[in-house]
Design a protein around this nucleic acid. Structure first.
Length: 328
DNA sequence: CTAAGGAA
DNA sequence: TTCCTTAGG
């Protein structure tokens, strides 16, 4: 879900060539969730192997990663660590939605209502530890680096961009802007041969809105984040107006004579002082081709032809690296 | 979601 | 070629 900032961020269009040679820190949970929800049959059934293991995420990771590399982009996947106690509420709500959706999915299937079935199947997507572990294993076999965050993956990815180790965070959620990512790119996909990339630069957002990052975080807290409910009736636009009028969230809460369920200082620190891993290595290796084929084709019923042609695309990275190495 | 194959 | 639909596991 993430913070609802669509109305105030004003993204700029971007082409894939602008990302050529760039390192993109992908929020793994965000990307894998997209795959689990969208890579399904018409009635909503996910792709599965003969043992009924879900394989939608394998398909997504294989094709998405190889196509990014073919475009000259170097992806690194950042996985979530332990999430904050503040997220419990959001997680409970999501679980409830998923349980309800799963029931409605099954019911629609029994009625033979395919459209309805798919709609609820998508909402029922859940990320099990099997899915996470399998994704990490596939990435390792493909030679793609992945990093285990201490806390939120978005926070770790944002730190890596802020530090200059990656060019942007790739995510569908605006949270990374709050976590201090100087750049984020949305819609890192190629739907129907066409790209619809959106670039959001923290500096430009703050300049245009004429506020500081701390104030932007206050807007988020008012509108609601994954870590707090927010104030009823206040979204990004009203929140922004209030922050500009009163300076910070404390003045606003005083003025409105309301209190939040969580101390705003704690929420601010969530975004400003997140624990991050500072020593990590970003290294793209040539894929273990037979390892990938054993895993995907042997264990999970993928077609060897398709997997091989996806792996061919990974050679682009090898070529770039070896031509670069020649200079040194 | 992306790849592939057939239609326009 | 480009566009659209379907399969993939």
């Amino acid at each position: 879900m993430g913070v609802k900032f669509r109305d105030i961020v004003n993204p700029e269009p971007l082409g894939f060539n602008d990302l050529n040679g760039k390192i993109v820190a992908l929020d793994a949970a965000n990307v894998i969730y997209q795959f689990l929800s969208s890579i399904r049959q018409v009635d909503g059934t996910p792709l599965m192997d003969h043992n009924k293991n879900i394989t939608s995420h394998f398909s997504g990771i294989l094709y998405r990663t190889s196509s990014l590399i073919e475009k000259g982009i170097k992806p690194v996947y950042v996985f979530d660590g332990i999430s904050s106690y503040l997220k419990k509420g959001t997680q409970a709500k999501r679980r409830e939605v998923k349980e309800k959706s799963e029931k409605r999915w099954k019911a629609a299937l029994d009625e033979g209502n395919t459209e309805e079935a798919r709609k609820y199947a998508v909402r029922s997507s859940r990320m099990s530890s099997d899915v996470i572990e399998g994704s990490k294993k596939l990435l390792s076999l493909m030679g793609i680096p992945h990093i285990q965050a201490m806390g939120e993956g978005e926070a770790q990815a944002s730190y890596m961009v802020e530090k200059g180790d990656a060019w942007c965070v790739g995510s569908q959620d605006y949270d990374c802007v709050l976590f201090g990512a100087t750049r984020m790119v949305k819609n890192l996909t190629i739907t129907g041969g066409k790209a619809n990339l959106e670039l959001i630069e923290l500096k430009k957002v703050l300049e245009r809105l004429e506020i500081t990052r701390e104030q932007l975080i206050d807007v988020a807290i008012l509108a609601g984040t994954d870590f707090n409910e927010g104030v009823k009736g206040i979204g990004a636009k009203k929140g922004l107006k209030l922050v500009k009028e009163h300076g910070d969230i404390f003045n606003i809460l005083d003025h409105m004579k309301i209190e939040l369920e969580v101390d705003p200082n704690i929420l601010r620190d969530m975004f400003l002082k997140h624990d991050v891993l500072t020593d990590y290595e970003l290294k793209w290796r040539s894929p273990d081709k037979s390892g990938v084929i054993d895993y995907l084709c042997g264990d999970h019923d993928f077609s060897e032809d398709r997997v091989s042609s996806a792996l061919e695309k990974l050679k682009k990275l090898d070529m770039n690296q070896s031509s670069l190495e020649k200079w040194f």
